[in-house]
């Protein structure tokens, strides 16, 4: 068949729309990265490319050092506050993701592969929580944190987020595909449930587990309102809260410093995303559950 010009024109139009969409998605990031390396003057005069070969300004790497310096200093740990925010975020996200994974794998295994009376009722209980919006339980959860004496501690930031219904749901679906014969074979070899779970089921379910880990990582890293509510001291802030506080203060006007701060937070996550992106999109497509 001969391709008519009309079809080729249609193809061209499709690519044009897709490329415009891609540009709009990417352009704000380009502005972030470039603005972080400009002087304040170049921002004020809105020069998109103030460097060689169109301008004579050197790359302003010192913006990063200045942003870290201006954010402040944590005297309890003797490090700049930025690093403290980063450590807090890493501690909280690390504990949350690791805990969520372990707890979800255990629960999903019991629900999918063990013969337990009442397990369907328990699974319904899990699904029912998806109906409870987080906003509805915000006030009582804050009250609970005060009562437990967890205000301004890591426990308040981690423990309430340790169970992910999304994780249990996705892993259960995945574990149910594990053939029953595999367990019988493992049992003949003398392996119990725990051995079977960690040496067979978990390794063969790696894609699902990575998806759960990544999405929980993103949600935990992005968590803002909760840490804002349950922490008080500057050195207990996570990156998201620290960034917002900087933006509400000096960063609101010093755009180049704000963008330096933002790019220090965003670029590592984006690189991480580029490496692992297939797990994200597949996980979303499979469950469609939003954090």
């Amino acid at each position: 068949m001969i391709k008519t010009p009309r079809i080729r024109l249609g193809r061209l139009l499709i690519y044009l729309v897709l490329i415009i969409g891609a540009l709009i998605s990417v352009l704000p990031f380009v502005y972030m990265i470039t603005s972080a390396l400009k002087s304040y003057g170049a921002i004020l005069t809105n020069q998109f490319w103030p460097w060689w070969p169109f301008g004579d300004e050197p790359l302003q790497w010192q913006n990063y050092a200045q942003a870290i310096n201006d954010i402040g200093f944590d005297h309890t740990w003797g490090i700049p506050l930025f690093y403290r925010y980063l450590l807090n975020s890493l501690i909280v996200t690390g504990l949350t993701v690791a805990g969520t994974l372990l707890i979800s794998i255990m629960a999903a295994y019991a629900l999918a592969l063990m013969d337990l009376p009442g397990k369907n009722a328990i699974f319904m209980l899990f699904l029912a929580t998806l109906m409870i919006p987080g906003d509805l339980t915000l006030v009582p959860k804050v009250v609970m944190v005060f009562r437990l004496g967890w205000y301004n501690t890591y426990a308040a930031l981690v423990v309430p987020w340790l169970v992910s219904v999304f994780g249990v749901f996705l892993l259960r679906q995945f574990f149910m595909q594990v053939p029953k014969d595999l367990y019988d074979a493992a049992q003949i070899d003398g392996a119990g449930h725990i051995r079977f779970m960690f040496s067979i089921v978990v390794p063969i379910s790696r894609p699902a587990i990575i998806t759960v880990a990544l999405l929980n990582f993103i949600w935990s890293w992005d968590n803002f309102r909760w840490p804002l509510l349950v922490t008080r001291d500057a050195n207990m802030r996570v990156l998201a809260v620290g960034m917002q506080q900087f933006m509400a203060g000096e960063g609101g006007t010093q755009v180049h410093l704000m963008m330096a701060f933002a790019s220090m937070v965003v670029v590592p996550v984006l690189i991480f995303y580029f490496i692992t992106q297939r797990y994200f999109t597949e996980g979303i497509a499979r469950t469609g559950i939003k954090g």
Binding site: S25, F29, A240, M243, G252, A262, S263
Partner: peptide, 24 residues
């Protein structure tokens, strides 16, 4: 590749992307 680019804003920390847009 397109899908990956379109999905980028979603994985970006809200505070960071909000700061970028506040500037834009």
């Amino acid at each position: 590749f397109f899908r990956m680019l379109y999905f980028m804003p979603y994985v970006t920390s809200t505070v960071a992307s909000a700061a970028i847009w506040a500037y834009l």
